[in-house]
Amino acid sequence: MTLAGPSTTLSPQEIRVVLLVDDEPQALKWFVRLYGDEFVVLTAGGVDEALAVLRERGNEVAVLLTDYRMPQQDGVRLLATVSREYEHISRLLMSAYADKDVALAAVNQGRVEQILEKPLDEAVTRQALRDASAASRRRLRDQVLLRRRDENLRETLGFLAHEVRTPLATVGGYLHALRDRQQAPACGSAELACLALRRPGEVRTMLDAALRRTDYAQSLVTSFVRTARDAYHADEAASELASDLVKSVRDGYPFEADEAGWLSCDLAQDFTLPGQRDLLYLVLCTLVKNALLALHAAPPPLPAIRIVLDTEAGEPVMRVADNGPGIAPEVLARLTREPVTTRAEQGGHGMGLVFCRRVMQSLGGDIEVLSPPGGGVHICLYFKFREEEKHHEVSR
């Protein structure tokens, strides 16, 4: 194997590694001299040598250019192997015998992207290498994107499973309670169901609470299904107003008793969300849930949660604040970077804010958690927009 690199200094994004496979040593030397000014050139004298190079440096190679006629194995078989095992590599074939059978074999077996006729034309070959390198980089970016989407979906699914388990467990508890209260009707009629009430109206209260939690669990599942569907579309999910997101959480979250009265919203400085509305729904539900838990753990005289749409340094911000007991400094420093929970005995896993941070960063933004000395927690969701996305205000 020989190696030649560009004489000029190129950034990592510009370096294009080409693996040339040819059984003629003089042709290898000529190719390195001619194209080494623009490409990093690796060479191999046959199929076995080429496969050895790929096993060692296949992740670096952008283009494979192989001769057709070679001893032992022909170039098409090499291209077929590369198409299966190194999907990002662009595959080019050169041949002085570019007849119909060679072309068909190259396309059908090796999935070749272009056939170059020998002797190579310098201008045509150079452009073909440039185009093939660019195609390889696009495939690599797409593969990375798909891996990240898969990882995000798996993480979201795990988070969702935990979030759904809590309301479903509550629904199950209510159903068990109703079953335990069932009694045989005094009149002996099989068409009547009698429930023993421990306090007036408790059955209606349990049914209403169960319905709220069922609707909330359904909204979480629906959000995940939309996110999973949109993740594999080329276009981003349709953007929506931040105020619509806040209203959907305000109206859909399964508040208990007078909890809904604790929440107030200032939606005057509205803005358009940068896609991924369904993941942001999970984020905002998580922040509201955490605030409610904090307020129940150490109730202030007048519990309050406030969601405000705002701007900071010209960028849109969503703020979620509560007047609960606050967060200890040693816990605060770790919250969004690693799983931390003070509610392990209640089933807490500490992944909530970590998940929120990853969602915000996937949108090009971030999350900041503050806890002033006087108590309370202030969470800021920062959104970054492309230049064409205009921030706008909408009256309440």
Results as ranks from 00 to 15, higher is better:
Arg154Asn: 14
Thr66Gly: 05
Gln183Trp: 09
Val124Arg: 10
Ser362Thr: 05
Val225Phe: 07
Ala242Tyr: 00
Asp270Arg: 03
Asn152Cys: 11
Ala193Gln: 14
Thr205Trp: 08
Glu259Val: 02
Gln276Arg: 09
Gly364Glu: 08
Leu20Val: 07
Val394Phe: 10
Val18Pro: 00
Leu120Trp: 00
Val203Cys: 08
Leu19Ala: 02
Trp262Gly: 02
Met206Thr: 05
Asp366Tyr: 03
Ala210Tyr: 03
Thr214Val: 12
Ala257Lys: 15
Ala210Pro: 01
Glu85Met: 14
Asp180His: 09
Leu10Ile: 04
Glu387Val: 07
Asp48Cys: 14
Thr166Leu: 13
Leu282Cys: 06
Gly110Trp: 01
Arg149Pro: 03
Arg181Phe: 09
Gln182His: 10
Ala333Thr: 14
Leu20Asn: 01
Arg57Asp: 04
Ser90Cys: 09
Leu207Ser: 07
Thr222Arg: 06
Ser83Asn: 09
Leu178Ile: 10
Leu370Val: 12
Arg204Val: 13
Val246Phe: 02
Val283Asn: 02
Val203Lys: 07
Ile305Leu: 06
Gln73Pro: 15
Ala257Phe: 13
Val394Thr: 13
Ala238Met: 10
Gln346Ile: 10
Phe385Pro: 03
Asp266Thr: 06
Glu388Pro: 03
Val246His: 00
Leu93Tyr: 05
Val17Gly: 00
Pro254His: 04
Leu207Ala: 08
Pro301Asn: 14
Leu120His: 02
Ala304Thr: 11
Ala291Phe: 00
Pro12Gly: 06
Asn108Pro: 06
Val249Gln: 06
Phe255Trp: 04
Ser11Gly: 14
Val221Gln: 12
Arg357Pro: 03
Glu24Tyr: 08
Glu387Met: 09
Val112Ala: 09
Leu19His: 00
Ala62Asn: 13
Thr222Leu: 08
Arg199Trp: 14
Phe271Met: 01
Thr214Leu: 12
Leu370Ala: 11
Arg33Glu: 13
Arg165Val: 09
Leu295Phe: 02
